[in-house]
Structures are given as structure tokens and as C-alpha cells.
Amino acid sequence: MARRYEVRLAGTGGQGAILAGILLADAAIRDGKNVVQTQSYGPEARGGASRAEVVISDGDIHYPKVLQSDIILCMSQEACDRYGGQIREGGLLILDQDHVSRAPTTRAVRAPLTSLARQATGREIVANVVGLGMLTALTGIVSREAMEAAVRDRAPKGTADLNLKALAVGFAEGERIRREAR
């Protein structure tokens, strides 16, 4: 079986965890990978737990859900409490420290995704895409070009520039963290 990369993006309904999953999956296809994206959310339009799961592989993907995450992005305390510990050894846990104060490990990468989004674009709503930018820079699981193309094509109508800006901010933050870690 080809190596599976399993990504879980979790937050509160309305934060865009599922859109982030769709963007990541779309980018993976642009990179020539196989991908499956699934979601889990409550009956509410906003609020309630919401998560997207993305499985990326060079081969067939049979089981479509996450078994043990390689990468987790948590955008709420509830999501972190629930999924933060379910990570593969050597995996990457990214937390939006504007919403998450308690982490299950000191190894988590913390960044103020919501504040970064607000400062760079004036809109907190794109914190999810800031997170995606960070995730892309930190893991290289998809290429930056593919991620940008996915955002350009799939961002809600009229928000492509806003989201591309958010992606760039996240990518720069990810690069910075990576440099510091060296």
C-alpha cells in the first residue's frame, strides 16, 4: 500500500474547516496526487463541531477517513481537546492560539491565525486559509503553486484576492517558524 498522508482540519462550524479541506484536496489533485476529502459536522449552519478530513496518497485510497493524523489543524479549543492527541508520532499539530489555550503537547506549533488574518486582511473569516498557508509551508504536502491555484479557483466568488493574501501571510509565517526551528 502506498503511503497515506492524513490531514484533519477541525474547528467550530462557520470557521471554514470544510472549505480548507476542499482547498487542500483540490491542490493535491493539481499536484497529481490521489485524494479523498470527507467531512463531519452537526446539523447547525453555524456553531457546533466541524471537521474536514483529507487523505492524500500516490496510490489508491480505500478507507476515506483519517485513521491516525499526520497533520492536524485545530481552530477551536473543543477541536483541540478532541483531536489534538490523535496524532501520529512525528506528526504536526497546528493550533490557532487565538482560540486554543490548552494543548495536549508542548510540541504543537502555535500561531495566532485569527489575529494574523485580521491584521493582514481586516477579516478574521480567512483564518482557515492562513492556517492552510502555514500547513503548506511547514509540510510541503502540496506545492505552494497548487495551493494558490486551488484558492483562486475555489474561494467563494469575489474573495479570491482576500484569500490569496491570507494564504501568503500563512505561508510566510510557516516559513518563519521553519527557519527558527532549524
Binding site: I22, A25, A28, I29, K33, N34, V35, V36, Q37, T38, Q39, I61, P64
Partner: peptide, 9 residues
């Protein structure tokens, strides 16, 4: 729901 909502290549 899995198959209906799942996105796939």
C-alpha cells in the same frame, strides 16, 4: 452520507 458528501479525485 459518506459517498454523497465525499469529494474524491
Amino acid at each position: 452520507e459518506v459517498i454523497g458528501h465525499m469529494r474524491e479525485r
